[in-house]
Design a binder for these strands. Sequence first.
DNA 1: GGATGGTTTGACCAATCGGTCAGTTTCAGA
DNA 2: TCTGAAACTGACCGATTGGTCAAACCATCC
Lengths: 202, 202
Amino acid sequence: MTRPRTRIQQRNSETILEAALEVFSQQGFRGATLDQIAEVAGLSKPNLLYYFASKEAIHGALLSGLLATWLNPLRAMDPDGDPVAELLGYVRRKLELSRDFPRESRLFANEMLQGAPRIRAALEGELRDLVQEKSAVLQRWMDEGRLAPVHPVHLIFSVWALTQHYADFDVQVRAVLGKAAADPFPEAGQFLEVLFRRLLEP
Amino acid sequence: MTRPRTRIQQRNSETILEAALEVFSQQGFRGATLDQIAEVAGLSKPNLLYYFASKEAIHGALLSGLLATWLNPLRAMDPDGDPVAELLGYVRRKLELSRDFPRESRLFANEMLQGAPRIRAALEGELRDLVQEKSAVLQRWMDEGRLAPVHPVHLIFSVWALTQHYADFDVQVRAVLGKAAADPFPEAGQFLEVLFRRLLEP
DNA sequence: GGATGGTTTGACCAATCGGTCAGTTTCAGA
DNA sequence: TCTGAAACTGACCGATTGGTCAAACCATCC
């Protein structure tokens, strides 16, 4: 919450968070060490702790704001737009997040695997409320016959699962597709569009 | 690989692996400690190391065999069966794995998030080969007009993503659905059947 | 009862963990 | 150029880590 004031504070805080994201997203909270983060950041360990009070504080700084970024694409789904186009747009934006911010996705996944000890409250509050709100919109679209009927909450789950898979299980995806296919995301985008069109077009 | 001989060895080996699964699946390899595992197992730490040479050995014993269990449902997909029924059967069996063995799923997910350092070879070998084989079957079914055309490998990815999501992100699923819905799996099963029917029925 | 081999443990080890602190270096503004 | 605050560091701390080891325990068969 503390706003960096000087240029040095600004730069070093960002450097530390960037390095911490790299390490936390791969090792999880307990598996990551301050020495690793310091080395990646190119700073000394005491210097890290000059900018952040503790390991927990660095992790917390990364997590806070992450959920918001994560939910923005869903929030942007317009109740007054065209149902299929709106949902396909949501899927596309979510997939772009997986492509452009895979480490953030893995940080989130790590937190989930550990039982979400640090963001459970946000899950049961902010996240739940938004899903309920958007589920109601989806349900209305289905009632109006503009979207094929399906369980709206599980529909949202399916968007999350299908898009995050390409970030969290990136190694597996690339291992299966082989080294020939450099970038799996264009294909994934096409596949997901087909999937959700067939699922949802009335 | 060492086969337990006496009854005590049998029992304690199983107890240790059971406890290790509990801890590794939640904390990841680096985050887990032998003390935690020993406490969960109800054994002393030196006694753990009497049965397994090292922490790495315990983790390795869990991972080996896991991939096989994980791929069995896909392996069981019959090239001579009815296409839609075969794939829906695969989805159902995979979802049952998520329901009955969520810790194994999370152990696997943890390994993926870390870049699969210990099973990368198996991913690029055994896993890749099986997916290629089954993709060819799916492609043939599509060519024969018995399955709607779609990228076969990404189709398999989608089965993995959608089913494993209910194990790996269990906390999130339950947080969103609220405490009212005790068991999300029946609904999930129905949703996935609808999804794959609409996607694949010609 | 004694011998034997599998089983268990308390005490211990070096290495690493998150974190502290006294003190030094660097920088911005007057 | 001086000065005070900001930035940085080496050395260090107690706790925890994975792992070792000699000694003790225990069940079984003679």
